[in-house]
Amino acid sequence: MLAFVAKALLAGVMIAAIAEVGRRLPTMGALIASLPLVSILGMIFLWMARPDAENMARHAEATFWYVLPSLPMFLLIPMLLRQGANFWLALGLGCAVTILLYLGMMQIGPRLGLRL
């Protein structure tokens, strides 16, 4: 339980740091947010719990393929905001499109031979 709390606190600190840096320097906040810190920490914690090279390789590869469907969200949200859309609407639509793309990846990926 202590390990879970430590992981949750670390994630919270990361999010708070990104928000604080982004408030002052939006581009720097975006750079920090784009770093695969969560993925790296996830891999470290997964390795510590189950040091299995094949399991880790599958995890890292699947992470790559699941990042791709999330990328359009980062173009859709600014486009909607610049056209005058409400932030919450733009965020909601961006998330909805991402969910649809994730579902599509889950359906199409295995047909293309991807191990997701």
Rank of each mutant, 00 (worst) to 15 (best):
E20C: 00
E20I: 15
V21H: 03
G22F: 01
R23L: 10
R24T: 14
R24D: 10
L25H: 14
L25V: 11
P26G: 11
P26R: 00
T27S: 10
T27K: 09
T27W: 03
M28E: 12
M28L: 15
G29F: 02
G29S: 10
A30L: 06
L31N: 08
L31H: 08
L31P: 00
L31T: 14
S34Q: 11
S34I: 08
S34G: 15
L35K: 08
P36T: 13
L37I: 14
V38L: 13
S39R: 04
S39P: 06
I40Q: 06
I40R: 09
L41V: 15
L41A: 14
G42Y: 05
G42F: 09
I44Q: 13
F45E: 11
F45M: 07
F45C: 08
L46S: 15
W47K: 09
M48C: 04
M48A: 14
A49I: 10
A49L: 04
R50S: 14
P51V: 05
D52K: 04
D52M: 04
D52E: 09
D52Q: 05
E54G: 13
E54C: 05
N55D: 12
N55P: 00
N55G: 06
M56P: 09
M56K: 05
M56I: 15
A57Y: 04
H59Y: 15
H59M: 11
A60Q: 01
A60H: 04
E61A: 15
E61M: 14
A62Q: 05
T63R: 00
T63H: 01
T63L: 04
F64K: 10
F64R: 12
F64M: 15
F64Q: 07
W65L: 07
Y66L: 13
Y66W: 03
V67R: 03
L68T: 12
P69E: 11
P69M: 06
P69A: 08
P69H: 02
S70T: 13
P72C: 03
P72F: 08
P72S: 09
P72G: 04
P72L: 07
P72H: 07
F74L: 08
L75G: 11
L76V: 12
L76D: 00
I77Q: 00
I77T: 03
I77N: 00
I77W: 00
P78M: 02
P78S: 07
M79F: 13
L80I: 12
L80A: 04
L80D: 01
L80Y: 07
L81H: 09
L81P: 00
R82E: 09
Q83T: 08
G84M: 01
G84H: 05
A85I: 05
A85N: 01
N86A: 08
F87L: 14
F87H: 08
W88C: 00
L89F: 13
L89C: 05
A90E: 04
L91Y: 08
G92R: 01
L93G: 01
